[in-house]
Every structure is written in C-alpha cells, then in structure tokens.
C-alpha cells in the first residue's frame, strides 16, 4: 500500500546541521520527516516558492533533460527506510513504456515538484518511523522554524 503525501515544508535541523523536508498526507494524520543536504533543500525550496533562477539549477536541468526527449515523470515513491537512509523510485513514461529509476528521496522530491508529479510513500516506511519521537520533536518547534531557507 502507498499513501500520497505532500511537501509540508522545510526546516533546518541545527543539531545535525542538516535540513528536513516534511511530508504530510491529505488527512494530516501521518507525517514523514526526511533529512536531506543543503543543496537539495535549496532546490526544493526554490520549487516550493515557484522561483525561477536566472540559470537552470541542477534539478531544472534534470527536468529539461527529460523534457528534451519527451520523457514524463509519472510519480515518485519513497520506498524504504534503512538505518535512517531513505530510498525512492522515480517512475517515468517514455515512448510507450514505463521505466523505474532508483533515487535519493531528495532528488525525487525536487524533480516531482518541478514535474507536478504526485509523491507517494510506502506505508511500511511510515510505520517504521517512530512517530512518537517525531511528534515530540515537532511540538517543540515554532512556526518560524518552517520559514524560508536562506539559499
């Protein structure tokens, strides 16, 4: 089973000096944090805020590369969580065939936002992740923590 989720926002995690992208399902009942690097966070932030930089950034180039050959991103799926590393798959339509490509979730999300493709998460991933711990972590956050990145 997979659940569709949306990008709720980005946060900076000062303890790990990393960024967290927060995914949330439609009913707002499930939440999934994914720790990502700074360049990927900047890229997701640009897409969320609909900012077109003067030159194509890496994921804009990635999208242009697929557009050039008429390949379309159908969906991305966060498939597995293994020792705090998340795995994702990007589903593409090219010609009459569907292709599946292994990816980091950060690249998959950055590309999905630019392609207006849905983001799904395997339910096993949502279950695996300790929600109590996360809830507590999130309760301590202030609204301004969801603010913009200074990229």
């Amino acid at each position: 089973m997979i659940t569709q989720m949306h990008v709720k926002g980005l946060m900076f995690d000062p303890y790990n000096n990393a960024y967290i992208v927060i995914l949330r399902d439609e009913n707002q009942s499930e939440m999934l944090p994914i720790w990502i690097g700074k360049p990927e966070a900047s890229s997701i932030s640009l897409a969320l805020e609909n900012i077109a930089p003067p030159r194509p950034m890496t994921h804009d180039f990635m999208k242009a590369y697929l557009d050039a050959v008429n390949a379309k991103v159908i969906s991305v799926v966060i498939t597995d969580l293994n020792e705090n590393t998340y795995f994702a798959k990007i589903h593409l339509m090219y010609g009459d065939s569907e292709y599946t490509v292994d990816s980091r979730p950060s690249d998959a999300i950055a590309l999905a936002l630019r392609s207006e493709a849905p983001i799904f998460v395997n339910e096993s991933v949502i279950k695996k992740q300790s929600s109590e711990e996360l809830d507590q972590w999130l309760e301590n956050l202030k609204p301004e923590d969801f603010g913009k990145l200074d990229s």
Partner: peptide, 19 residues
C-alpha cells in the same frame, strides 16, 4: 557514493531510456 547523487541520477535516466 552509497546512493546516487543528482548527476548520477541524470546519467541513470539516460542509461535506462537509451539516451
């Protein structure tokens, strides 16, 4: 790297799609 980085992913797109 243990996981494909962004440019590895673009290369993998090419490899999968025959580009």
């Amino acid at each position: 790297t243990p996981r494909p980085m962004s440019h590895d992913l673009i290369k993998n797109f090419g490899d999968h799609l025959g580009i």
